[in-house]
Amino acid sequence: MKDSKRLVRILDEAHQSASPITCSAFLGFYLKDSGIIQKAVHDYLVQTNTEVALMDSLNRLDERSNVTLYNSYLLSDNLYKAIEFGAARAEKFNQVIMTDAHVLEGILSFLPDTDKWLDILQLTSSTHDLLVTLPISRVPMTPVTDIKAASLIDKKEILDFVKEHFSLRWTEQVQRLLIEDNGIVLIVREESRLAGFCCYQKQNAKRAVFGPMGVRKDSRDSSYGRSLLLSALHDATENGFRELLISEAGPIEFYERVLPLQLHTKEKG
Rank of each mutant, 00 (worst) to 15 (best):
L152Q: 11
I153G: 00
D154F: 13
K156S: 15
K156G: 06
E157N: 11
I158D: 00
L159F: 00
D160R: 09
F161H: 08
K163A: 15
K163Q: 15
E164V: 07
E164D: 15
H165C: 11
F166T: 07
F166L: 05
L168Y: 13
L168N: 13
W170C: 10
T171Y: 14
T171A: 07
T171K: 05
E172C: 02
V174M: 08
V174K: 02
V174G: 05
Q175R: 07
L178G: 04
L178V: 02
E180N: 12
E180A: 15
D181Q: 15
N182W: 10
I184W: 10
L186E: 08
L186D: 11
L186R: 09
L186K: 06
L186V: 05
R189D: 04
R189E: 13
E191L: 07
E191P: 01
E191K: 14
S192C: 09
S192N: 14
A195S: 11
G196Y: 03
C198E: 06
C198V: 10
C199L: 11
Y200H: 08
Y200N: 05
Y200V: 05
Q201S: 13
Q201L: 04
K202I: 07
K202Q: 14
K202R: 15
Q203L: 14
N204Q: 09
N204V: 02
N204A: 04
K206P: 02
K206H: 14
R207Q: 15
G211I: 08
G211A: 06
P212A: 09
P212I: 05
P212G: 08
M213Q: 07
M213D: 03
M213K: 03
M213R: 01
V215W: 00
V215Q: 00
V215N: 01
R216D: 08
R216K: 12
R216S: 12
K217S: 13
D218K: 07
S219L: 13
R220L: 02
D221S: 14
S223R: 15
G225W: 01
R226C: 02
R226A: 11
S227A: 13
S227F: 00
L228W: 01
L228E: 04
L230A: 01
L230Q: 08
S231W: 06
S231I: 01
A232W: 03
A232T: 04
A232K: 02
A232P: 08
L233T: 03
L233P: 00
D235N: 13
A236S: 12
A236V: 07
T237C: 07
T237G: 02
E238L: 04
N239K: 14
N239M: 06
